[in-house]
Write a protein that binds this DNA or RNA. Structure first.
Length: 644
RNA sequence: GCCGGCGUAGCUCAGCUGGUAGAGCAUCUGAUUUGUAAUCAGAGGGUCGCAGGUUCAAUCCCUGUCGCCGGCUCCA
């Protein structure tokens, strides 16, 4: 038997038998390492701990500290799930079972759906199998032989036919379970310590709704019980912040069954918040050289035929309505309208850039199953703007757009964000509109703009829209979730379709470049993100009620009202709780309404023209003159402070 | 749209595999006049999402429909 040479991460070398396995090396280094080992890396490739190394190689033993380990761990937990399902329901056919961000899932094909009770049974069975310390065994199979072996399992056959090499690997777990799988896996089930099955959902085979619908079981898995509990707690936290729940509790907005799904009603308190968003954005438009425009909600279908939306966007549009023999279309986008304004008169290069901005309300048909609170609706308002400019101007325009996006995030209290640049395929296919020159120019401009602003950007090739490359900005919220928000995208399609032009210095007509950009994206959606980010406790400048005056007894109500009037006069949104209730109750209710400041007034305050300030977060702040409070709170409002 | 779950008072939820419904909070009334997260008492309030069907009898079983939730898909 020949020997092989193993190089460890510290550079040391060992000569060992070819059938030596990573776990053997780990043991020879230290029992603790062997115990902590999850998986190995052999020449950079993930390897089972129990798979013979077989050739000269560099070897790294991965433990729970290495991020790749968790995926292997979850993948193995998914196999454990499938093994349990097969033990309980042998007729079930297996789909795929990959690890995902917070856990894993497995897709099953089965005539009767799983119930929540089944989930409990399956989880119990999983622990039972786990306790047997069954090994995950890797087996090599010939492709034709494998197809025979899996002839009962149609999904596996499909996968093997499409993806498998001539000789492929399988993994077994116990007597019932064998799976076409690249691996690697844990050595055995005893390594699995903490997991929980979470939910059952329908999922289409390969994510395509034309395919058969399978039943997916989701689960989460972590190295330790502690991490599992922390994750479940984080899920709970997210539930507490759910904007649909808070929207009702804080009386911000509603969706009315009688009016229809996906259509948002802003209540007075939500209305104040929305007005803050709108006012800030319009103000910024003006400061940053945009022209504010207003356009209709419907237009002749011909416009949408010219823009092409009637064709490629038809399935997202409400059906046209007939008016005096002509068809009219509710607008799903603002761009054609802005284009009409641009094209309404001849443009000189001296006029460019033309930046037309609008808070434009659009209606899109979304399938009923995808609607979700404020996040996914059928009618929403975009802070939409279109920039028409020359080639020389695009880089500057893109820089300004991105800077605007970053300023927007900071203003609303988001400090972390990510940017993604979606580019085309370099012309490999014909699915993209526009010329290679245009793509090059635009992609370069986007790239250079991010460099100028020192933005970190992830490039996603072949992810662009068909009409142009784009940069998307994602924010990270208070509990670490990412939300796609702003977008800056080029459009090579519409200027051509509408024959847009400007007269250049050479006296000839040229086609302008068009940039489409939205920073909030959708005001409704951004509102929802804000609700969840702040868990309803908005910064003072956004809070619907900024201060509530709490008279201790009825005889203080008069003074309380005079305080409220002073606050009103100073532009501080204030109310008075006039109920004949105890202060404790009034405070409790104000806290639950997440009102930033509670101003308790009794004999002492009335006598000294003061208010006893209570901050929703920091509690009792002591008494101070009304003017002092107004000065302090105005400072916070004027600076749009996001911390208290 | 599809799969699964759900729809009971303004809100949050109970309601024993069929005998026309109950709690807490909220509301109203009365008492209490209160100092930093729930004062007490009484009263009113439901065609059990909607429409059919089965049954002597339906909140409960069946069918359809509307809406919501978790996913699939897609995006802002």
């Amino acid at each position: 038997m020949s020997n092989i040479e193993i190089t460890l991460p510290d550079g040391s070398k060992q000569s060992v038998a070819a059938e030596t396995r990573p776990i053997d090396i780990a043991r020879s280094i230290s029992p603790r390492l062997a115990d902590a080992a999850i998986v190995a890396k052999v020449n950079g490739e993930l390897f089972d701990l129990t798979r013979p190394i077989g050739k000269d190689a560099s070897l790294q033993i991965l433990t729970a500290k290495d991020p790749e380990s968790l995926y292997v761990y979850r993948h193995s937990t998914a196999h454990l799930l499938a093994a349990a399902v097969l033990e309980l329901y042998p007729e079930t056919k297996l789909g795929i079972g990959p690890p995902i961000d917070n856990g894993f899932y497995y897709d099953f094909d089965r005539p009767t759906p799983f119930t929540p009770e089944d989930l409990e049974k399956i989880e119990k069975k999983m622990w039972e199998i786990q306790a047997r310390s069954l090994p995950y065994e890797r087996v090599l199979t010939q492709k034709d032989e494998g197809l025979k072996k899996y002839s009962e399992a149609w999904m596996k056959c499909e996968l093997i036919t499409e993806r498998a090499d001539q000789v492929f690997s399988e993994y077994t777990l116990g007597p019932y379970f064998i799976d076409f799988c690249r691996g690697p896996h844990l050595p055995d089930t005893s390594k699995i310590k903490a997991f929980k099955l979470l939910s059952i959902a329908g999922a289409y085979w390969k994510g395509d709704e034309h395919n058969k619908q399978l039943q997916r079981i989701y689960g989460t898995a972590w190295f330790t019980q502690k991490e599992l509990e922390a994750y479940l707690k984080q899920v709970e936290e997210a539930k507490k912040r759910d904007h649909r729940k808070l929207g009702k509790e804080l009386d911000l907005f509603s969706i009315q069954e009688l009016a229809g799904p996906g259509l948002i009603f802003f209540h007075p308190k939500g209305g104040i918040l929305r007005k803050q968003l709108e006012d800030w954005m319009r103000d910024q438009y003006i400061r940053r050289g945009y022209s504010l425009v207003y356009t209709p909600h419907v237009a002749r279908l011909d416009l949408w035929k010219t823009s092409g939306h009637a064709n490629f966007y038809a399935e997202n549009m409400f059906k046209p309505m007939e008016v005096e023999g002509a068809e009219y279309q509710l607008k799903p986008m603002n761009c054609p309208f802005h284009i009409l304004i641009y094209a309404d008169r001849q443009r000189s290069y001296r006029d460019l850039p033309v930046r037309l901005g609008e808070l434009g309300t659009v209606y899109r048909y979304e399938r009923s199953g995808v609607l979700n609170g404020l996040f996914r609706v059928r009618g929403f308002t975009q802070d939409d703007a279109h920039i028409f400019c020359t080639q020389d101007q695009i880089e500057g325009e893109v820089v300004d757009c991105l800077q605007f996006a970053i300023d927007t995030l900071h203003t609303f209290g988001f400090t972390e964000y990510e940017a993604e640049l979606s580019t085309w395929d370099g012309g490999a296919s014909s699915k993209y509109a526009g010329s290679a020159d245009q793509w090059q120019l635009a992609e370069n401009a986007l790239q250079r703009a991010t460099e100028k602003l020192s933005m970190k950007v992830k490039v996603s090739p072949d992810e662009a829209a068909f009409y142009g490359p784009k940069i998307d900005v994602k924010l990270v919220d208070a509990i670490g979730r990412k939300w796609q928000l702003s977008t800056v995208q080029f459009d090579f399609n519409l200027p051509a379709r509408f024959g847009l032009e400007y007269i250049a210095e050479d006296g000839k007509a040229h086609q302008p470049l068009m940039v489409h950009r939205a920073l909030y994206g959708s005001i409704e959606r951004f509102f929802g993100i804000l609700i969840e980010h702040y868990a309803g406790a908005f910064p003072v400048w956004l809070a619907p009620v900024q201060a509530i005056v709490l008279p201790i007894t009825d005889r203080h109500t008069g003074y309380a009202k005079s305080v409220q009037q002073q606050l009103d006069a100073a532009g501080v949104r204030a109310t008075v709780d006039e109920r004949s209730e105890k202060v404790n109750l009034k405070i409790r209710d104000a806290q639950l309404q997440k009102i930033p400041y509670m101003l308790v007034v009794g004999d002492r305050e009335q006598e000294n023209r003061q208010v006893a300030v209570r901050n929703r977060k920091h509690g009792d702040q002591g008494a101070k003159p009304v003017e002092d409070f107004i000065r302090d709170v105005r400072a916070l409002i004027d600076s749009k402070a996001v911390t208290e």
